[in-house]
């Protein structure tokens, strides 16, 4: 860690001003990612703006059956909120598939969105890494890349976004509420994170000085047919190798609306809305599920150590769709795959 100045923001305005004023400033929510990265000598904020006092903890009802989740609502608070469990069980399930109870008690919604990749090299300052040090090279290409991306990677970076929660939010079509020096704006969850391209140092599309204040969810028809299926190196307390958030609106055995988001495979929760649209009106059966998996992974490319993720993701998508269609979502406690 490097010495930094510490201020406690009392209002969102305070925080935004402090953030915009100093390019070295970073927001501190619960710190489970930021403090971790500072200790590993990866993050070097010169100023910490503590946002824990901001009034952003609430989970509020919205007209039309939606919810607004404050950026400081803890992962546990969201996952166990009765309204979330009833209306967005997919979100609850995805959160409970991640990290540990202790971490979820601390971790915030905003922090989870902004958490950085777990790429081994990103975490190890003695190795070249374009995300950590633009232009230094990508050590994961040709290196130890078991956990890396199979979709949307570039020759500059093949990292994945590690969040489980965000995969569900992407599937549910959440909206991110943002506050910045130029005021408030909304951003679709699917546009929040970005692909690495030539600028892997940028994880998302937030402008300097902007912060997340809330996540908005609309009313939806996915409470019955959904699942979050996470595959990982041990049965709990491990990041996803591959995860699938699936939600289907089914009528008379046919797909009315379909959402599939993938975790652990790309620099952002991977969703392909065009592909999803193609399958509307198709029967909710094995053949369709295979078709969807094939379509989503058509451009998948392995890096050696992670080649297995392609067949694994394919099978996982089919399985998740089957779980969702049959109304038997993956239980995050019982470890047998449903």
């Amino acid at each position: 860690m490097r010495p930094f100045s510490y201020t406690r923001a009392e209002t969102v305005q305070d925080a935004v001003i402090a953030l915009a004023a100093d390019p070295g400033a970073q927001l501190l929510a619960s710190g489970t990612n930021l403090v971790d990265l500072m200790k590993y000598d990866v993050a070097h904020p010169t100023a910490i703006v503590d946002i824990n006092r901001l009034p952003l903890k609430e989970i509020e009802d919205l007209p039309g059956g939606g919810l607004r989740i404050g950026a400081l609502a803890s992962n546990s608070a969201v996952a166990y909120d009765r309204r979330v469990q009833e209306r967005y069980p997919l979100l609850s399930s995805a959160i409970l598939a991640g990290a540990s109870p202790q971490l979820r008690n601390a971790a915030t919604t905003g922090g989870n969105l902004l958490q950085r990749t777990r790429c081994f090299y990103f975490y190890d300052p003695s190795t070249p890494c374009n995300k950590r040090e633009p232009g230094s090279g990508c050590s994961a290409i040709g290196g130890t890349n078991r956990i890396h991306a199979i979709l949307g990677a570039s020759d500059k970076c093949i990292a994945t976004h590690p969040s489980d929660m965000c995969v569900a939010l992407a599937a549910l079509g959440a909206t991110v509420e943002i506050e910045g020096p130029d005021g408030r704006r909304d951003l679709a969850m699917t546009d929040f994170h970005r692909l690495p391209g030539d600028q892997p140092e940028r994880d998302n599309t937030l402008a300097p000085g902007e912060m997340v204040t809330a996540i908005r969810l609309e009313g939806n028809h996915f409470a019955r047919h959904h699942t979050y299926l996470k595959l990982r190196g041990r049965l709990s307390y491990a990041f996803a190798l591959v995860s699938v958030a699936a939600a289907i609106d089914i009528a008379d055995g046919e797909i009315v609306d379909l959402r599939v988001a993938l975790g652990g495979v790309a620099h952002k929760p991977w969703r392909d809305t065009l592909a999803e649209a193609e399958f509307a009106g198709q029967p909710a059966d094995e053949a369709t599920f295979r078709g969807i998996a094939g379509r989503l992974l058509a451009a998948a490319k392995g890096q050696g150590g992670n080649d297995f993720k392609i067949p694994l993701a394919e099978k996982a998508i089919v399985r998740a769709l089957r779980q969702a269609a049959s109304g038997t979502p993956q239980d995050q406690v019982v470890k047998a795959v449903q």
């Binding site: 501190l28 619960s30 403090v35 503590d50 546990s76 601390a106």
Partner: peptide, 15 residues
């Protein structure tokens, strides 16, 4: 009252 990992908590932030 809530269980939390103390190693990732900056003490200043829980005044």
């Amino acid at each position: 009252g809530e269980r939390v990992n103390a190693c990732l908590k900056l003490a200043v932030s829980i005044d």
